[in-house]
Simulated scan of single mutants.
Amino acid sequence: MGTAELLTAAGVGSGAEAIVPSYATTEAAEAVRAAGALPVFADIDPRSYCLDPAAVTRAVTSRTAAIVPVPLFGHPVDHAGLRAVARAHGLLVIEHDGSDQDGSDQDDPAEHDATRASLAARQANAAYLDARLTGVLTPATGPGAEHRYHSYVVRVPGNGRPDRDAFARALRARGVRCRVPVQTPVHRTPAFRRELWLEETERAADECLALPIGAGMTRRELQRVVSACNALGGLLPMAA
Score class of each variant (00 low, 15 high):
G15W: 08
A84K: 11
S118P: 06
G233R: 04
S22R: 14
E202P: 03
L196P: 00
V226G: 07
I213T: 08
A124Q: 01
G158Q: 09
G74C: 01
R63Y: 08
F167Q: 03
A86H: 04
G36W: 09
A59K: 03
L129W: 00
R83G: 11
R194H: 07
L222T: 10
D206K: 02
L232E: 06
P69D: 05
M217T: 02
A54E: 15
T189E: 09
L236M: 07
A126V: 01
A10Y: 09
A37Y: 01
A145N: 00
H89Q: 09
V70Y: 06
R47W: 13
G214W: 01
F192Y: 13
A31I: 11
A173E: 14
T138Y: 06
E146R: 05
R203H: 06
A239I: 10
Q223E: 15
A88S: 11
A35T: 04
L198E: 04
R193I: 15
A24Y: 15
D78C: 13
P237H: 07
A10H: 12
L92P: 02
Y49R: 13
L91W: 15
P212E: 01
Q183S: 05
D52Q: 10
E95L: 11
D43H: 15
L232P: 02
R194I: 08
A86K: 10
E30L: 09
T26C: 09
V93M: 01
G160I: 09
N230K: 13
H150I: 13
V154W: 09
L6I: 07
Y23K: 06
D97G: 04
F192Q: 08
T218Y: 12
L235C: 08
R219E: 10
V70A: 00
V32P: 00
R63C: 14
F41S: 03
G160D: 03
H150R: 11
R224E: 15
A9E: 15
P185Q: 12
G175T: 03
R174D: 14
G216C: 08
G2C: 13
V153S: 06
V186F: 06
T184L: 15
A84V: 12
V77Y: 02
G234S: 12
R194L: 11
S227T: 14
L6P: 00
Y152E: 00
R203Q: 05
D45R: 13
S151E: 07
A16V: 08
S99T: 12
G74N: 03
I19A: 02
N125V: 10
S118C: 01
R188C: 02
Q183F: 10
L72T: 11
T184C: 13
A120V: 11
A55Q: 05
